[in-house]
Write a protein that binds this DNA or RNA. Structure first.
Length: 423
RNA sequence: GUGAGCGUAGCCUAGUGGUUUAAGGCGCCAGGUUGUGGCCCUGGAGAUCGUGGGUUCAAAUCCCACCGUUCACCCCA
């Protein structure tokens, strides 16, 4: 074999497609229910879009972006995450002139150059929702509600919704300072990663898994004590609305998210048994992002979910997915004359909306029917010398074993008629 | 980028230094008389045992390197 799918990518084979279809259709259905509209953004963008918004100090920009130069010398990057492109499109198409907020959703591939492992791939697919243009805390709750409804409607038991507020640019810096001061006192105990975090991304210090670092985190100052009045009110309102919607959540004062643009509300959703591969949904508010992209200050909230993780979770949950039985007909023939007649009849049937799989090659009738069987065909049409001369065809019901010789138009009528629908 | 496990036909697995010209199951193909599937029977195709080097009289089997893959860390969906 000369080539394999690149590391961390995979083919989504026919037998996987029902899962993908199911998840994407559920996502779409839920979005419609909440009045969100679909937006597709390009698979690559100017690399600056991600570099500016997601920002340095985060792995996703520092070492995980697929960056390349096109023939015109433009520096481009494969879509590293979904939110920044949505905001770019919001600005580019003047969506700030639409009634605010604008509710959008997307489904598409995302690329990150990292070592693959359970639940993480170099190409994966995200479904996400974004509400742009309104800072109302009901929208934070709405977005969490959507994510939860989505998982529940798929049949996934939602284990926990983790919630936190990381403040805004007024109050967060004060907290970060306090955090740094606290950690500096214990610098001799920190793991090497945390030594780096202390300088580059202090918020992330909180969720280090090293036990010595966790001890430091235990006694560290809490963001909740540093929120400015506006952020405090906002966060309280979010919680209040979640309670009103009877959405259970857990406060997690150590929850911070990896992307720099988050402000105020951040959240993650996990489901049973899949904690190892991380969150199924992650999101939050990003009130400064649009401004960073050159727009007017515009608040927004959203979330993203990983479709691969969701499907894997569904499978381990042994969830059943609804599948619609599909009636298929196999077209068998014997001889060159009959081959032509079969092709014509197949074509005619398809024009009438009847799915037909045509036999190929020079196989025996036995072999053709064996194939029809393994393809799960409900009917086989058989055309040989006899049928060619009489302008007829044999219609065989593969389930009941009954067959009869019919004229070509009778075959079409029989297959399109409701009387032959056996499933 | 770091660490650990694993790499035998399309898939699953046996074989762990010499009757191996590498075995079995699933799948695939063909046949079991004249134009008919699913079960059964018979036969067939399909593997440079991940790649390269080394140890040995002898290696799929031991050693090393590389590659791939899985899992974990980092980080994230």
């Amino acid at each position: 074999m000369l080539y394999k799918a690149p590391r961390g990518t995979s083919d989504i084979l026919p037998q996987e497609q029902p899962w993908w279809k199911y998840v994407q259709e559920e996502a779409t259905r839920i979005c419609l229910l909440y009045g969100y509209q679909r937006l597709n953004t390009p698979i690559f963008e100017d690399s600056g879009l991600f570099a500016r918004t997601v920002a340095g100090g985060t792995d996703i920009v520092d070492k995980e972006m697929y960056v390349f130069h096109d023939r015109g010398g433009q520096k481009l990057a494969l879509r590293a995450e979904g939110t920044a492109p949505v905001c770019r499109a919001y600005l580019e198409h003047g969506m700030f002139n639409l009634p605010q907020p604008v509710r959008l959703y997307y489904i598409g591939p995302t690329f990150r150059y990292e070592r693959p492992q359970a639940g993480r791939y170099r190409q994966h697919h995200q479904f996400g929702c974004e509400v742009v243009g309104d800072s109302d805390p009901t929208l934070d709750a709405e977005v969490i509600d959507i994510a939860r409804s989505f998982l529940l409607s798929l049949g996934l038991p939602v284990l926990s919704i983790l919630l936190n507020s990381i403040g805004c640019r007024l109050c967060q810096p004060t907290y970060v300072e306090a955090l740094k001061r606290h950690y500096s006192n214990y610098s001799d105990r920190l793991c090497p990663d945390c030594e780096v975090r202390l300088v580059r991304n202090p918020l992330r210090l909180l969720d280090c898994k090293e036990s010595s670092c966790q001890e430091v985190a235990e006694t560290s100052p809490r963001i909740s004590d540093y929120l400015c009045p506006d952020c405090q009110n906002h966060f309280q309102a979010v919680q209040q609305y979640l309670e009103a919607l009877a959405i259970p959540f857990e406060m997690d004062y150590r929850l911070v998210r990896g992307l720099d643009y988050y402000t105020r509300t951040v959240f993650e959703i996990q489901t049973q048994g899949e904690e190892r591969q991380g969150a199924l949904v992650g999101g939050g508010r990003y009130d400064n992002l649009i401004e960073q992209l050159g727009g007017k200050p515009t608040p927004a909230v959203g979330f993203a979910s990983g479709i691969e993780r969701i499907i894997s979770s569904l499978k381990s949950q042994q969830a059943d997915i609804p599948h619609k039985p599909r009636r298929t007909t196999f077209m068998a023939f014997m001889g060159t004359e009959a081959r032509i007649a079969a092709m014509k009849l197949a074509s005619q049937l398809r024009s009438a909306g009847i799915p037909v799989i045509a036999a190929s090659g020079d196989r025996s009738l036995k072999s053709q029917l064996r194939q029809a069987n393994s393809l799960g065909a409900d009917y086989a049409i058989i055309i040989g010398e006899r049928e060619v001369t009489t302008g007829s065809a044999v219609l065989r019901d593969m389930v009941s074993n009954k067959q009869e010789t019919l004229t070509l138009s009778e075959v079409a009528a029989a297959l399109s008629g409701p009387t032959t629908a056996n499933n």
